[in-house]
């Protein structure tokens, strides 16, 4: 099993519903976010291009964060989901330094937090909170090893890219372009 997420930049309007839904689902404290929207504008009026991306932890295949964790608090569970065991995290911040996507942050309670691909929902066969709520249905989630999962189907038919592939982390968040 290899969970991955794809988001369609052609449909995303940057409404940030994914951000709020994640907050209310996962009790993310105010002022912090596990996912976010990036807006890229290029060109000169009126020849312009706009790309909107919904980003989060990429749950990489080659995780620099898990490698650098001194206590093993950052670990990978079944399906490739990267998680942090709060009671093992000492709050040293090495994983935050190691992440090229700035996906991690210090929770006010002290441990390091980030997107967990809503593993508590995935375990019950549901989609992640952000995928379930997105009004434009531009987020796709599923098992890459299952060719019938929403994410596999959409990656087969569309051009896609990932963030900072040169970092060598093999990120599993795909942007359909």
């Amino acid at each position: 099993m290899r969970y991955a997420m794809a988001m369609d930049t052609k449909k995303c309007v940057g409404c940030s519903d994914c951000v709020v839904a994640c907050q209310t689902e996962n009790n993310v404290p105010h002022g912090f976010c596990r996912d976010w929207i990036v807006e890229n504008v290029d060109g000169v009026y009126p020849n312009l291009e706009l790309e909107i991306r919904s980003e989060r932890c990429n749950h990489c295949d080659n995780t620099p964060c898990v490698r650098t964790c001194p206590t093993g608090a950052s670990h990978v569970i079944e399906g490739g989901i990267v998680k942090v065991t709060h009671a093992e995290c000492i709050g040293c911040g090495a994983c935050i330094q190691a992440c090229p996507y700035d996906a991690r942050y210090f929770h006010p309670d002290g441990y390091v937090d980030k997107c967990t691909f809503c593993d508590h929902r995935v375990a019950k066969g549901q989609d992640t909170a952000c995928v379930s709520v997105c009004p434009t249905k531009c987020l796709y989630f599923g098992d890459l090893e299952d060719e019938n999962s929403p994410v596999s189907k959409v990656l087969k038919n569309r051009k896609w890219k990932v963030n900072a592939p040169e970092a060598g982390t093999k990120p599993q968040l795909y942007f359909l372009i």
Binding site: G31, F32, I37, V38, N40, V41
Partner: peptide
Amino acid sequence: MKEELFASGRNIPFIDPVLHIWH
């Protein structure tokens, strides 16, 4: 002109605008 910005108001303490968790 190129613009790249957080459109969802992301401003996590010590992570944005630049990382500064080690003092």
